[in-house]
């Protein structure tokens, strides 16, 4: 079983995507009453996305080291 298929990793990524979606919906609904609040929610989305990218890169590097 590859690390990508690991249930824990899958769960973390799923939770992150869920958060991203929920925040996006919240923004799309026009829930941000001020620009500051809107910026904060956008930052959260970017942060969650960055976390998913970091996890993917770490898994890729880890797998590559193992192969070497």
């Amino acid at each position: 079983m590859s690390l990508q298929d690991d249930p824990l990793i899958q769960e973390i990524k799923s939770r992150l995507n869920e958060e991203i979606k929920r925040t996006s919906d919240w923004i799309a609904n026009g829930s941000a009453s001020t620009f500051e609040e809107y910026k904060k929610q956008c930052g959260k989305i970017i942060g969650f996305n960055a976390a998913i990218v970091v996890i993917d890169e770490a898994i890729e590097n880890f797998t590559k080291d193992d192969d070497d």
């Binding site: 923004i27 799309a28 609904n29 026009g30 941000a32 620009f35 809107y38 910026k39 956008c42």
Partner: peptide, 13 residues
């Protein structure tokens, strides 16, 4: 850009 997007969202509402 962000401000533009915010405005657009508000407008969308």
């Amino acid at each position: 850009v962000l401000r533009g997007m915010f405005t657009a969202t508000q407008t969308a509402n």
